[in-house]
Design a protein around this nucleic acid. Structure first.
Length: 480
RNA sequence: GGCGCCAUCGUCUAGCGGUUAGGACGCCGGCCUCUCAAGCCGGUAACACGGGUUCGAUUCCCGUUGGCGCUACCA
């Protein structure tokens, strides 16, 4: 039963990567890395109508952004390719052919309309709408006749003859009664495989050892187990991970709030933060550790600690985790990631040592990188806008005195303006005027930044530099 | 309707028969402080319900209720 660990993530390329899918991918990846196994990426694009190459690109990009590197896949190849189901049609056909020859499947010539009518009838009679086996055991002559009518057959696998059970790694033993399933289609009338058939053939041929996927696939497992048996192949282990739901317990929708990896990226969430948060949705560290790097996650991950109940996506907590990572990542990287937000705002010089220092100063208060142009805005303008709540500090009498006092003190002082010299000047002015605390600092803060909140004032002033500080002080002092 | 999965603070969770039911986010208060944030300290708040099993159930079993999923020639 023990074979090399090989897991796969098999998205349908029908849009951007959803956070739910991202978590499934993450669990697969963590499991593979933890076990030293292979992480395979397979594209399930048999649904021609919905699959697009742009979507495939988008999904690959999202995955790469998250840092979930795959060992085999459509773009990197591998020994078990091809990795796009649309390129494996011949493989499915061969296997279906074999099953047909072995009598394990049969051709069904029923049309959509006929099936639909039977379904409708069953429903009104209060019966379970299930395929009635009309084409089971058709003679060659009968098939020929149906075929000559121009009917294109599907291929169906026989209904189960007994109950089926799976020992799920996160759910334990789950049993499926034989009655719940009729003869099911494995090949459509146009020759394309259905999901359940393609998955089994692929997972088997790609020697997937563990199928870690969303809970919605649990009922499919019965069909798949049946197909493994029919094909004479050993099934993998299964682990069905619960769904991620909305605050109101419904399926996470695109409607309210962000739900795709791309959206979170645009809002300025670091990939390690999103990854970190997603890992905590349904899994927990044995020591309750919450802020973790990719490496720490890999080290600690264990399928046995994966929860079986659905989890609600909480953007507040994601933001909290993001704030941590923004503060703790190397400043060079954070500055790099922050740059596009400045560029989008058309702010000048998002580069260089000063830029990095500014990002370093303001990142303390950030939950999302997208907030950074505002947080650092006053550094990049000669005349920062004075916000309403800052105005009173500039208009008061003591405020004016402080500004003028500081201005002359600073003007009298030679050399560079650094943190220490600013503090020294502030102290001197305060003593002279008998002002301290807010009365001393707030007018200066308002004059330099236009706001009443922000990083430590001495640091702000030092970063602004002597010229800007003097200019802003004199302009503010003259305002009144 | 049938089948399945799930059920601890508002949310994410720990717990795997005996705990003052723990942690985290959020919220509230305090400390720190020029402000905000961070940090630190404290507070708020939960075992859905009913039966069993057991000396003892949050924990095991059954049922009820509720949520979700599947029930396609979608994945």
């Amino acid at each position: 039963m023990s074979r090399p660990v090989r897991v796969r993530f098999a998205p349908s390329p029908t849009g951007h990567l959803h956070v739910g899918s991202a978590r499934t991918a993450l669990f697969n990846w963590l499991f593979a890395r933890h076990e030293g196994g292979a992480f395979v990426l397979r594209i399930e694009d048999t649904d021609l109508a919905r699959s697009t190459v742009e979507s495939e690109r988008a999904v690959l990009d999202d995955l790469a952004w998250l840092g979930l590197a795959w060992d085999e896949g459509p773009d990197v190849g591998g020994a078990y390719g091809p990795y796009r189901q649309s390129e494996r049609l011949e493989i499915y056909r061969e296997h279906a052919e074999r099953l047909l020859a072995e009598g394990k499947t049969f051709r069904c010539y029923c049309t959509d309309e006929e099936l639909e009518e039977k379904r409708r009838l069953a429903l009104t009679d209060g019966r379970i709408p299930q395929y009635d086996g009309a084409c089971r055991g058709l003679s060659a002559a009968a098939e020929a006749a149906l075929s000559s009518e121009g009917r294109r057959p599907t291929v169906r696998a026989h209904r189960p003859t007994r109950d089926v059970a799976v020992d799920d790694l996160v759910r334990g033993r789950v049993e499926f009664a034989r009655e719940m399933l009729g003869d099911f289609i494995i090949l459509r009338s146009d020759g394309r495989p259905t999901y359940n058939f393609a998955v089994v053939v692929d997972d088997a041929l790609m020697e997937i050892s563990h199928v870690v996927r969303a809970e919605e696939h649990l009922p499919n497992t019965m069909r798949q187990l049946l197909l493994y048996e029919a094909l004479g192949l050993e099934p993998p282990s299964f682990a069905h991970v619960s769904l991620i739901v909305d605050k109101d317990r419904s399926k996470l929708s695109k409607r309210r709030g962000a739900s795709s990896v791309a959206e979170f990226r645009e809002q300025g969430f670091l990939s390690e933060a999103l990854l970190n948060y997603l890992a905590l949705l349904g899994w927990s560290h044995p020591d309750a550790k919450e802020i973790m790097s990719r490496d720490e996650l890999v080290r600690a991950f264990d399928l046995a600690r994966v929860s079986s109940s659905p989890a609600a996506f909480d953007e507040d907590k994601l933001a909290w985790i993001n704030a941590h990572h923004i503060r703790e990542e190397p400043i060079g990287r954070v500055a790099e990631l922050a740059r596009p937000y400045f560029e989008a705002e058309g702010v000048c010089e998002p580069d260089g040592e000063r830029f990095e220092a500014i990002v370093d100063l303001v990142r303390e208060g950030l939950e999302r990188l997208s907030e950074i142009p505002y947080a650092a805005g006053f550094f990049f303008t000669d005349d920062p806008e004075v916000e309403d709540d800052a105005r009173p500090w500039l208009e008061s009498e003591t405020g004016e005195a402080v500004l003028k006092g500081l201005l002359s003190t600073l003007e009298a002082e030679e050399g560079v303006l650094d943190q220490a010299s600013v503090k020294r000047a502030l102290k001197a002015v305060g003593e002279e005027l008998g002002a301290r605390g807010k009365d001393l600092y707030m007018p200066v803060r308002a004059a330099l930044t236009g706001r009443i909140h922000g990083p430590s004032l001495a640091l702000v002033a030092a970063l602004l530099g002597r010229d800007r500080v003097l200019a802003r002080l004199s302009r503010a002092a003259a305002r009144r």
